[in-house]
């Protein structure tokens, strides 16, 4: 029996912060407060432990170890004092899955109307996975997918279904 197309793992202990602001005015302050460069449109910047994703023209998503969340929120609020902005903890609102393996792209191709082959190395794509919203970017050996917490079981199911051994998309 062949192997599954990819391994699906639920990523735990991630903190997430939604930041809404006018980047033209507050971008530098945000970057400094979170310690990451401001991502370009539809990109994500990252260091060893944190990532900062572009979600919308006035929205960023900071992903970091959960223990650093409160500190990061405080730092952001401090940095954005006097600036019209919204900094809010969304760590508990999300379910995160890592899709890793030689055919990880095939797994996503079964779920999303997106050409992931063409996704830049630092690209972040918001789309849908089957019938639910998702944001997807590259990690070592595959992709990370975030969706809503309430649909975690559904996401886990459709991701695992898509990894069915022998179902890779290359012509047979």
């Amino acid at each position: 029996m062949a192997d599954a197309l990819a391994t699906i793992t639920r990523a735990e202990n991630l903190g997430m912060v939604t930041i809404r602001a006018d980047f033209a005015r507050a971008g530098d302050a945000i970057a400094e407060a979170v310690g990451l460069a401001l991502p370009d449109v539809t990109r994500i910047t990252t260091d060893d432990s944190r990532s900062l994703g572009w979600m919308s023209p006035d929205e960023l998503l900071l992903i970091l170890p959960v223990s650093e969340t409160a500190g990061a929120i405080a730092a952001l609020e401090q940095a954005l004092t006097g600036e019209h902005s919204l900094v809010v903890n969304v760590s508990d609102a999300r379910a995160v899955f890592d899709v890793v393996g030689p055919h990880a792209t095939d797994v996503l191709a079964k779920l999303s109307p997106v050409d992931f082959v063409e996704l830049p190395q630092d690209g972040l794509r918001r789309t849908r996975a089957a019938q639910t919203a998702a944001a997807i970017w590259r990690i070592d050996g595959g992709f990370r997918l975030i969706g809503f917490r309430s649909t975690a079981d559904y996401l886990g199911l459709i991701l695992n279904n898509a990894t069915l051994a022998g179902s890779q998309l290359a012509p047979r």
Binding site: V41, T42, W54, S56, P113, R126, T127, R128
Partner: peptide, 12 residues
């Protein structure tokens, strides 16, 4: 026009 993504109808 905001993010430059060519989205298909099901994403809209």
């Amino acid at each position: 026009p905001y993010c430059g993504v060519a989205a298909e109808e099901t994403e809209l």
